[in-house]
Nucleic acid binder design. Sequence first.
DNA 1: ACGCACCTGGAAAACGTATTCCAACACGAC
DNA 2: GTCGTGTTGGAATACGTTTTCCAGGTGCGT
Lengths: 349, 349
Amino acid sequence: MLVMEAGRRGKQKAAPTLHDVARQAGVSVATASRALNGSSTRTVRPEYISRVVAAAERLGYQPHLSAQAIALGSTPTAALVVSDIDDPYFSSIASGVIVAAQAHALIPTVAVADRSPARELQIVRTLRGQRPRVIIVAGSRIDGAGTDTTLDDELQAYQAVGGRVVMVSQESLRFPTVAIDNAGGGRQLASALVSRGYRRFAVLSAARKIRTSRDRCDGFLAGLREAGMPEPLVVETRFTRDGGYEATRRLLDGGPPTVDAIVTVNDVMAIGAMTAIRDAGFTPGRDVGVAGFDDISWCADLDPALTTVAIPLHQVGVMAMELALGDDPQQPVIRVPTSVILRDSTPSR
Amino acid sequence: MLVMEAGRRGKQKAAPTLHDVARQAGVSVATASRALNGSSTRTVRPEYISRVVAAAERLGYQPHLSAQAIALGSTPTAALVVSDIDDPYFSSIASGVIVAAQAHALIPTVAVADRSPARELQIVRTLRGQRPRVIIVAGSRIDGAGTDTTLDDELQAYQAVGGRVVMVSQESLRFPTVAIDNAGGGRQLASALVSRGYRRFAVLSAARKIRTSRDRCDGFLAGLREAGMPEPLVVETRFTRDGGYEATRRLLDGGPPTVDAIVTVNDVMAIGAMTAIRDAGFTPGRDVGVAGFDDISWCADLDPALTTVAIPLHQVGVMAMELALGDDPQQPVIRVPTSVILRDSTPSR
DNA sequence: ACGCACCTGGAAAACGTATTCCAACACGAC
DNA sequence: GTCGTGTTGGAATACGTTTTCCAGGTGCGT
């Protein structure tokens, strides 16, 4: 029994090293290394190469990435920080970042900050120890939080030693950014809805500290003003499906809707809002319009299909990686345009 | 101009090392290391500790994880392989795995195999070089693919040197597994729908090679047989939203539905099916029932709310990590029960 | 035939950290 | 006062790889 236990653990022969491969092939480690990586300045006898390759194959050798990293100075790794991977907004961005990373032979790493600035800071600290080539931060930047400048400093320190930082949708002046035109999208949405006959709005936004939410909300308000519409009702709630549900529920508490449409600062909130409208006994689209932001997958599969401000999220992820790997372009900010997609959740009235 | 360029690149002072910290603090590297990690067997003078900590703070020192890894033998890393991070099925599992990893102070790594067995194999190879503490594979295992045994071998080799492998929802007898009771869920679903008065079904499944799909499909068929129902129509399509849409569209090509309900082997297919039903001029739930598998987020927010076989995906992710880190339990297979959630997409008839 | 350049293999150093081992020192006991 | 013991700092080594540096050998030109 004890023997078995010992055996089980003892069988960990320790992964084969380059040294083992070299011995098997009857050459030195230097030659083995050169044979496997094909050194650029040096050439090694073809026969040796095949002997080394065969030995590596036979032993199931895999180079120890950490050892390579320490010898070469950096890790073939790209780190992404998101708030919540289960949120389609972030998972779409993540999918773009990940495929782009893999296309560049980088190992993608995903950390989840759980919508906490403190956690985000801690993650970036840890990440820095990993010496990735790239750090992409796609969290929802919170303004004014004390940790904010600290995070900036941490990233700055990382950048100072050669790391590449890219922010997604949060204009920190200090780092390259993939900027989403949230305000513009909001303005367009206002104009589009007004021309479909909507007049009185409720806007469901998240805490004002959250940049993305504020920009979208303010953009919409600006668009409304430009169209000469009266000031809408602005309700502050959480940035999630449940936030949208609860706020809408409260809104409809007193009876039939007093607004023509409910506009939320992202699609998952809009989904919650639509359910709340139904639960209150009304029909979204007919009794009250609904619109969101993001155009997450199957927005169009909802009934009624959701009007929204489309953002090419997957592309945003890809662009973030390209920007990070790019050659320090003159223009370190990529502006991503947004476009309004009108669907049945906001029929003409 | 050129100077600026040079300056920009030249400013890469190379991250501060433990050596630098030690020098700043006026102690040896050994002492510095012990001061920062708190060696278990040794004690260091309190004054030195604070001096070292202060120096580290001042320099913005972060230990080089790769160097630690090579000194200690393994990396504080947990790798997850999924087919498609943008699919809510996988992103929910991923969220569980990631939070569990972070709870154990492991850096989560996510690779996307893009539903290709070849890519999956290549990823596991690369991963092996990273020497993570655990590898969790949540792809959709494809039976019979030639690469399959190769993948098993690769994982076996990894396990032989002390790595922990966990499979999610794909019973490979050779590794610990979080097994989802897909067949049981299918059987229950059949029984539940029959007792709501449904008789004639169409089943939308994916290629038979895909285990998850086959198990769900076969379980449903078995349940139908047990209830004495006639054999349903089985349509093979892709495992995605579009697959569900197209198959349903073809199904309804000839006019009104000839079946009471359409059952799909996952929720995203069901979502596509519901849209197809509407596009064909019918109403899901009223004209034809719809049911899926997974209970992905806001299944309940659809209209009609989707009947489905619920799987605690986030929990599955957490359990996979616990299983990987656990103490080689007697029972290396965790069976996750599933439960049918009846909603308005399958009203009684 | 001699010297020189070039090719190629191997020994050794380097990367940054953790740890083993050695030495110095302080303190208590006799 | 001397010896032993326990404590703690530092030098040296190990981890697995890449790369520099050195040396031996071959081929070429004169």
